[in-house]
Amino acid sequence: MTAAIKPRTMKMALVGDINVGKTSLARMFIDGTFQARYQASVGLHFHTKTLRDPSVTIQLWDTAGTERYRSLLPHYTRDAVCAVLVYDISSRDSFDNVRSYWLDFVESHAIPNMVKFLVGNKADVDTREVSDYEAQMFATNHDTFFMETSAKFGTNVDNLFTEAAKAVIKAIPETQFENGGIRLEDLHRKHDRRCCLAHA
């Protein structure tokens, strides 16, 4: 019977400073590849992946960390049920920016009960500048989940998104966000007649 039920769709947003590995995390999660060549994201990348356990389809909105696209961020992260705040464990600045900017940012544009996940990426590098203890303490104090990952070797990547999905299922009932995406229909709800035809 369960096979007939459509997996719940949930929107997750990856945010964080430039060059902390958001796109690499997304790619490793989606198709298991890693690209050493760095290329700044333009605007936004969008990915989806369906997990078996828990049975969910994750819509991953991989945002650009560049300052140039900051004004678009609230637009992209709107209605996300989970924010993945990524920093680079070998960059003190990227962690400080999570504390001073990114956490406030997601909280001010979040839906109620949004799940927050603090992620220290590049766990494979030797030049650590942020200890896992410090990050864990920060996460605990701000009601945020925490995990260290390595997008390069795939360490904890699947685990991260599975845990995030489980946390979302626990924290947010499905009915609140059936579409899983943004609600453009808000603009003309009264007369929306044909648009729904195109919904999957």
Binding site: F46, T48, H75, G181, I182, L184, A198
Partner: peptide, 22 residues
């Protein structure tokens, strides 16, 4: 892309916020 959303995993709802600002 929207028409083949089964394959592309994207539809007009998800393309719009990406291409709107562009």
């Amino acid at each position: 892309v929207d028409k083949n959303q089964g394959k592309s995993k994207m539809n007009a709802d998800t393309l719009a916020p990406i291409f709107g600002p562009i």
